[in-house]
Amino acid sequence: MNNIHNRPTHSSSPFQQLDLNLLKIFEALYQERNMSRAAQRLHLTPSAVSHAIKRLRNQLADPLFSRQGNMMQPTALCESLAPALINNLDQLRQILQLSEQFSPETAVNYFRLGFMRRWRNLYYRHWLPPWRHRHRAHPLPAMVWNARRW
């Protein structure tokens, strides 16, 4: 039998098996310094935030935060990790936002225009020919809607 199931479950580095969702929770708690506010910001329950921080504490072998009244105070390790982690999360968000931007030149989406009957001739004579010339791979079908529905 192969040895895939006999591999050690823990790697030598705590970051190799790290769940990136835990870093979002870390960021919120670090910035809010309050478990309930962090949970509210993330649309989670305080219990879910608490469990996530516990998992992160176990992976990093550090308490990360200590409770002082209603506030969660960061430990020295937490203070040293936070700026770089938060900066890298921001960069990752920016990278992911770039992939969400729409570009009609590269889009492979299917579009269908709908308009009232009186605009049909304008569409077929003036708008459609330039579109077809520039975007041969993207047909732009149109349907005429009954003006009474509007």
Rank of each mutant, 00 (worst) to 15 (best):
N58S: 06
R93A: 13
Q59E: 05
H126K: 08
T106R: 15
M35D: 01
H126G: 01
T9H: 07
Q59L: 08
R148F: 04
L89A: 07
L140A: 06
W127H: 06
S47N: 07
A76L: 14
N88I: 09
P46F: 01
L92Y: 06
R132S: 07
L89D: 04
L96H: 10
N121Y: 08
Q94P: 00
R33G: 02
R134P: 01
A84V: 12
R134A: 11
L92K: 05
L92R: 09
R149A: 15
Y30G: 00
E32M: 10
Q31L: 14
L122D: 09
R93D: 15
Y123G: 00
P63M: 01
E100R: 15
Q101E: 10
H135W: 05
N70E: 11
S12Y: 03
R125H: 10
R41V: 12
L122H: 14
Y124S: 11
M143C: 03
N70R: 10
D90G: 04
R55I: 00
N6M: 07
L20D: 14
N6F: 05
Q97N: 14
V49H: 01
W127P: 00
R55Q: 06
Y123T: 00
A137S: 13
A147W: 02
H135C: 05
N88Q: 14
K24S: 09
L20Q: 11
E100Y: 13
L22I: 02
N146S: 13
D19T: 14
S80M: 07
R148Q: 15
R125N: 14
D90T: 14
D62K: 08
L22E: 05
D62L: 03
L23F: 00
L23I: 02
H138L: 11
N146Q: 09
I25Q: 10
D62N: 13
A76M: 12
V144A: 02
L44Q: 11
N21K: 07
D19S: 06
Y30K: 00
Q59C: 03
S80K: 08
A28Q: 00
R132P: 02
R118G: 09
Q68G: 01
P63V: 01
N146M: 04
H138F: 04
P141Y: 11
M1G: 13
P104C: 07
L29A: 03
Q94G: 04
Q91Y: 10
V144I: 10
S11Q: 12
R134N: 08
S47Y: 12
R136I: 03
G114V: 13
F102Q: 08
F15K: 11
R112H: 06
S103H: 15
P129G: 05
N146A: 13
E32C: 10
L77C: 03
S36W: 14
N34M: 06
L98N: 15
L60V: 06
R57K: 05
Q17M: 06
N88L: 14
M116C: 10
V144S: 04
R37S: 07
P46K: 02
N121H: 10
Q94S: 15
F15C: 08
L96P: 00
S80V: 09
A48L: 06
G114L: 10
F111L: 12
Y30R: 00
S80T: 15
D62P: 05
S11G: 13
N6W: 03
F65L: 05
T106N: 14
A48W: 03
A84Y: 11
